[in-house]
Amino acid sequence: MDPGLYNYWVVIVLMMSGLYVVIARSNLVKKLIGLNVFQVSVIMFYISMGKVDGGTAPILEDGFEIYSNPVPHVLMLTAIVVGVATLALALALVVRLYGAYGTIEEDEIAEMDDQDT
C-alpha cells in the first residue's frame, strides 16, 4: 500500500465506525462518542491534505524552503471549536433528557414517547 494514502484509510475507517456507532447504539452518550469520532475523522482528513512531504511549519526562516499548507490547519481550529460546542450542547441535552425521562437509552425514551401520545 502506498504510504501516502495511509492517513486517508484511517480517516475512512474512523468515519465509518463513528457513523456506525451513531446509528447502531441506543445509549445517547455512546451516540455522542460516535458522533465525535465521525467529526474527528474529518479533522484528520483536512490535516492530512495540508501536509507537504518534508515540509516544516510555515514560518519564514533561512534554510527552510518547503512548508506545509497552513490553511487546512487553521480551518480545523474552527472545526474543533464547533465540535466542542456541539458536544457541550449535546451533553447538556442528555442531562435534561435524563431529568425528564429517567434514562439515557434512546429505545426506552422512544417507548415512553409512544405512551405519551
Binding site: L19, L35, F38, L89, A90, R96, L97, I109, D113, D116
Partner: peptide
C-alpha cells in the same frame, strides 16, 4: 413537552452529521 428535548437531540445528531 419533554418530547421537545428528544426532538432537539435527534435533530442535533442528524444536523451535526
Amino acid at each position: 413537552h419533554r418530547r421537545a428535548l428528544h426532538a432537539a437531540f435527534q435533530y442535533l445528531v442528524m444536523g451535526t452529521l
